[in-house]
């Protein structure tokens, strides 16, 4: 049962540099408090016992969305609702745009942050799967300077990342989607807004009718998000078809060994995962075709069509 939060020291750095100094001083005795939508419950449940909270909510320099050199950079303290409402995100990172509305509920997204979700690294959450699928880069800062960590090397275990105790996650960089890219985030949950029993981030890019880039990553299948590289390799160079997506679903789920818990057996999760691959690829391909047509007709607007998100029961 949750109880009141335990006593904790509370620091409010005025700059990122001050936050870095505080982390250097307190190391793993400290937790960085961003949106607090996971950390506060963990403290209430005594699953986290930081001696010091370093509250970064006032650090405006860590918030915002910008584009340069084909990359979309999102400050770690950017709130999820801000990213959800961002035209830049909708246009250039359609997979992220598809996933954001599925995170928790509206009141959670009011406070929750992009960096917080990735630093918390819940394997059933949406953003870790998105970051892994898109080969996002996570920028961490310490007194030694900045270090850029590819998403593939970020997630190390259940709620565990390769962030060192003296490092703070300051920014996440996503590659901007090329023309003809469509994306979908599919998930099955007991109730809307719950963590996914299985979730799938899917992105396809079409060029002249064939798949030129395919990205698939699962949430909820283990201690970390899981990339389906074999299925991606199968898809590239082929034209979208039901048979192709069926085979991709088989390849994506052949080698997986999902956990059992109250929400589902390994067999159930595997079956759901295969279903989500078929659905996700179909939705991403539809969205990619739509975006190709839109690109070709040079009508470049209305980012809403850039992504499709779905939240379905099996």
């Amino acid at each position: 049962m949750p109880v009141k939060l335990p006593h904790v020291e509370y620091e409010v750095p005025a700059t990122v540099a001050e936050a870095v100094d505080l982390l250097a001083e307190h190391q793993d005795e400290a937790s960085v408090l961003a949106g607090g939508q996971s950390l506060i419950p963990l403290m209430a449940l005594r699953l986290a016992r930081p001696a010091v909270l370093i509250d970064i909510n006032g650090l405006g320099e860590m918030s915002g969305v910008s584009v340069s050199d084909g990359r979309v950079s999102i400050g770690a303290m950017t709130r999820e609702y801000v990213a959800e409402e961002s035209e830049t995100v909708a246009d250039a990172v359609p997979l992220l745009a598809a996933a954001l509305p599925l995170i928790g509920h509206e009141a959670i997204r009011s406070r929750g942050t992009i960096g917080g979700s990735l630093a918390h690294a819940d394997p059933a959450a949406e953003l870790p799967a998105v970051a892994l699928a898109l080969d996002a880069e996570l920028v961490v800062r310490s007194r030694a300077g900045d270090r850029v960590v590819p998403a593939a090397q970020w997630f190390e275990g259940y709620l565990a990342t390769s962030r060192r105790p003296d490092e703070i996650l300051v920014e996440v960089r996503f590659p901007a989607a090329g023309p003809g890219t469509g994306a979908a985030f599919q998930e099955v949950a007991r109730r809307h807004g719950d963590f996914a029993i299985v979730g799938l981030a899917a992105s396809l890019t079409l060029a002249d009718g064939a798949i030129s880039d395919a990205r698939l990553a699962f949430a909820g299948l283990g201690d970390v998000p899981v990339r389906a590289a074999d299925a991606e390799a199968l898809l590239v160079g082929e034209e979208p078809s039901a048979e192709l997506f069926e085979e991709a679903a088989r390849r994506a789920t052949d080698g997986i060994d999902p956990p059992a818990d109250l929400n589902g057996s390994p067999e159930y999760r595997k079956k759901v995962a295969a279903t989500l691959v078929r659905r996700g690829l179909r939705a991403a391909a539809d969205s990619a075709r739509h975006n190709s047509a839109r690109h070709n007709s040079a009508r470049h607007n209305s980012a809403r069509h850039n992504s499709a998100h779905a939240h379905e029961r099996p």
Binding site: Y10, G36, Q37, I40, P41, Y81, A107, R111
Partner: peptide, 11 residues
């Protein structure tokens, strides 16, 4: 914005 007041510190 709607927020959960149990997930936010008074400070």
């Amino acid at each position: 914005r709607a927020v959960r007041s149990c997930l936010m510190l008074a400070v």
